[in-house]
Design a protein around this nucleic acid. Structure first.
Lengths: 332, 332
DNA sequence: GTGAAAGCGCTAACAT
DNA sequence: ATGTTAGCGCTTTCAC
């Protein structure tokens, strides 16, 4: 009735339970003959090792918990993809949760990760306080993807937002733009650095007087609203550096509705190089970060701590790059 | 050193382990006084119930395994979102895996779900043989999302692809189109029904002579290739019904490059109403299916079987709807 | 209402 | 190289 256990396999093969256990874990010190017998018996019975029991006994679940903001943003979807791929090829499973923007559901998700005794946690996006993070890190290795963070047992993988913002501004300035407005990402992960990078680059290029920030967030609507805001003004900027691609799309859409051509009237640069930035119809110049690869790196870094025994924190910073498409051009 | 167990809580509260267990599971028959004492002790010690041990003893993991093709397609990301949301609000966790289009990694993922003793499995996208599916269903309830399937212990949730295809064709015919080409989804999930729906609707509208199918798949590239194919012809069709949004985007992009305006020269209809279909720059007329809601329904259906004790298969078919945007217009 | 005790299916010393 | 024996931390009868 109930699925066969090691006991059953052992009996069928005429050996002890321990031997079956050794064979299942591919231990080296087992005679070929017995190994074959065990494998045959297991096959015969349709034996399937019970990972739950194994976890309880070995105190390792081979599972990592991944908490994302939401899956709609391709940025998150892509990192999830990288994470899952690398995890599974390392023999780990992924427990996935999304916080529905409500911090409470975030903490509930963490709670359930800890109850499930995951071997590690990857946080992508959600804003936790340093206390919350070090609290979870006291139970299990934690890594934040997309934002940096300090603390014992906490690693991070992110791109150099600051540098990315500089690339964007330098590109626009190089085309001859001076009135470059930034639509910010508000309180979202990485938003601060992008804004600071913008301000710093503007200053370095002697454009400090033209620094102009419209507050937004990482959504399409906020891009549209920012466009409305700009359209109210006496004079449009000649270029906009948007905090991310989705926002840029919203902004460009609203501008188009108002009859403002991109890049003829206004150049637009995004951030993230998400899938749709490359669509012919958008063809958005943007800052690329290798998201899937960063997801893979996250898993490797976590594994390195979980099984490799590393203990000092590691902060990985990836270099972003500029991808020029058709949404930018010299000012008229 | 190691985290506190029930034993520790019991000792601290001066009760038996069993009582602690009852309190943790919110059992009714416990005196208020003792309950309070147990809760206090647990809080004090920072007790965290071990879900692994609980699963082993209770033979239920409160986990469902979700296997997706890939997360890049917003269709999958959205369904994952709905699934995770509903699962977590029902107290279930989600183990997520993606098959990298390789069937072997699919079966490996299923294998690890079964080893983890998940309470149920949701398959979204991947093509398994009926044998493979009923094999897994013999171990645990299975639901396919996005494609129908038969068999004991197998449920399904999908939209009526057939009907959706009809909606698309009727819309185009209603605008006055007769030369309507379909770019198919090849062997992808739902592709067959969409193609058949197209053919049937064409026939019903007296356009059987104009049935014209270009074989593609569900990718952007295949859309571009289909466009190339069409451009080689002496005469373009006046309308194209694309197997999904991504493919439609690829097709429109290539057409635009060739100087063919949409909808001026060719009208295009997509399928899925994925996020970017609504972007101003694409503004794609498409067939909407409530993907996130379908994800939630999947979980409910599975739960209904897992805990509700339902045993007869349930096939849920959702009605799709037409969303008209700016990619369609009457023929010139 | 509460406690005692027997598992759940496996791993990991420790023997041999 | 293989078998023996304790657990891992919980649930779940079954008594009281």
């Amino acid at each position: 009735m109930s699925p066969p256990t090691m006991e059953d396999v052992a009996r069928a093969a005429g050996v002890s339970r321990a031997l079956v256990s050794l064979v299942m874990r591919q231990a080296p010190n087992v005679s070929d003959e017995r190994r074959a017998r065990v494998i045959a018996a297991a096959e015969e019975l349709g034996y399937r090792p019970n990972a739950v029991a194994r976890s309880l006994a070995s105190r390792r679940t081979h599972t990592i918990g991944v908490l994302l903001n939401d899956l709609h943003n391709p940025f998150f979807a892509d990192s999830a993809d990288g994470i899952i791929e690398e995890a599974s090829s390392a023999g780990y499973q992924v427990l996935m949760a999304t916080g529905t923007h409500v911090n409470q559901s975030h903490t509930a998700a963490i709670e359930s990760f800890l109850n499930a005794r995951v071997d590690g946690i990857i946080l992508v996006g959600p804003r936790f306080t340093p206390e919350q993070i070090s609290d979870m890190a006291s139970h299990v290795p934690v890594l934040t993807l997309g934002s940096s963070s300090d603390g014992h047992g906490v690693d991070s993988v992110k791109n150099d937002e600051y540098r990315g913002a500089c690339l964007a501004v330098e590109h626009l300035a190089g085309l001859g733009h001076t009135r470059i407005t930034h639509v910010s990402g508000g309180r979202g992960a990485g938003a601060d650095s992008r804004r600071q990078g913008y301000a710093r680059a503007m200053a370095d290029l002697g454009l400090a007087d033209h620094v102009d920030v419209v507050v937004g967030d990482f959504t399409e609507e906020s891009g549209a609203e920012a466009a409305d805001e700009l359209l109210k003004r006496a004079e449009l900027p000649t270029a906009v550096f948007s905090a991310n691609d989705i926002q840029a799309a919203g902004l460009m859409g609203r501008l188009a509705e108002a009859g403002i051509g991109v890049p003829e009237m206004v150049s637009v640069v995004g951030y993230d190089d998400t899938t749709f930035a490359g669509l012919y119809q958008l063809s958005l110049t943007t800052i690329h970060q290798p998201v899937a690869e960063m997801g893979r790196q996250s898993v490797r870094s976590l594994l390195d701590r979980m099984v490799g025994g590393r203990t000092e924190p590691r902060k990985l910073v990836i270099e972003p790059s500029l991808v020029v498409r058709r949404s930018t051009a010299p000012p008229r």
